[in-house]
């Protein structure tokens, strides 16, 4: 399975111009086209939009159409899977979403739409002021097996990649926009180091591939840390981009590595066996008898 990550530096608010940028990246990849191409969070608008999110959010079908058209203009009818983060307008409810799109001869199909569940609203972040939370962690079938998409902070809560893996995801795709901070570290910003540790831990514990697509470029003084990477099921970073350059990252994933990694470190199987005991603990703040509640 051949993967490319397009580490974009979008021009703030200029959707059409950024879409042209994607088309140019597709054209660049046409000679040896990947099976899956992943873009970061908010890749076609920029991340910090404040109230302008309402001007720029799109319905998923329109975004899917635009992205598929950009692909076809560059690469013709060749099939491809595309993932990208975008601000979604669902009939007046707004989400920070990621789309998984299958582009085939004669049409495109939305395989899955994930709405970011954890909206950072602290410090420099203000997402929940403008956006609604997604309510479901989806795991979906693709031609390369089961996958899940986690947008940025979704991936920081260890339980989220855990649940995705328990539900069968073999590849976690993480579109992200991370404003860099922490200059007291060693050779890189500490927020970059923290991200890598979070992603590696998910890969090691569950034996999954992690494909991380980071936005790059400055947004009003806040520099997005890029550092897109692919991490194998043993936690090795097999390729990583620099923080501040727009670029394309490519990697070949050997999906048999997943079984080998899990055979060597069968933590996911162990967890599957113990999970009911953990979740049935009545000291956990979990809803009980939720399926019987009349308003659900």
């Amino acid at each position: 399975m051949r993967v490319a990550i397009v580490q974009t530096k979008p021009v703030k608010g200029r959707y059409a111009e950024n879409l042209r940028g994607a088309r140019e990246a597709f054209a660049q990849l046409a000679g040896d086209a990947p099976d899956l191409i992943v873009f970061p969070e908010a890749a076609f608008t920029g991340y910090f939009l404040e109230g302008a999110v309402y001007d720029l959010a799109l319905c998923a079908q329109r975004f899917a159409r635009d992205l598929a058209r950009a692909w076809r203009e560059a690469c013709g009818e060749r099939p491809v899977d595309l993932v990208a983060g975008f601000y979604e307008n669902d009939d007046g409810t707004y989400y920070n979403s990621a789309i998984y799109l299958r582009v085939e001869r004669g049409g495109e199909q939305i395989v899955h739409l994930h709405r970011k569940m954890f909206l950072p609203t602290y410090g420099v972040f203000d997402e929940e002021r403008f956006l609604s939370r997604g309510r479901k962690l989806g795991v979906f079938e693709t031609r390369f097996g089961r996958m899940s998409m986690l947008v940025c902070e979704d991936a920081w809560h260890a339980i989220v990649p855990t649940l995705a893996a328990i539900k069968g995801a073999r590849i976690l795709i993480v579109p992200s926009a991370s404003p860099g901070r922490g200059i007291e570290g060693d050779r890189e910003l500490s927020s970059i180091t923290q991200w890598r540790e979070v992603l590696r831990q998910a890969a090691i514990e569950h034996g999954v591939y992690v494909i991380y697509a980071g936005l790059t470029g400055f947004e009003g003084g806040k520099g997005m840390t890029g550092s897109s990477c692919v991490i194998d099921p043993r936690g090795e970073v097999i390729v990583a981009a620099p923080p501040l350059e727009a670029c394309i990252v490519r990697a070949d994933l050997d999906l048999r590595e997943i079984e080998l990694a899990r055979a060597g470190l069968p933590l996911l199987g162990d967890l599957s066996a113990a999970l009911p005991d953990l979740l049935l603990d009545d000291e956990l703040p979990l809803p009980r008898g939720v399926r019987d509640a009349p308003d659900r």
């Binding site: 860099g180 200059i183 007291e184 060693d186 050779r187 890189e188 400055f218 520099g223 501040l244």
Partner: peptide, 24 residues
């Protein structure tokens, strides 16, 4: 007093200035 990785900071601030003046 807080420390600093001067090389990383220089790279970041140089990119910041280029972005603010040349790009934006």
């Amino acid at each position: 007093p807080p420390g600093i990785d001067a090389a990383v900071t220089t790279e970041w601030l140089t990119a910041f200035l280029r972005d603010e003046l040349l790009v934006r």
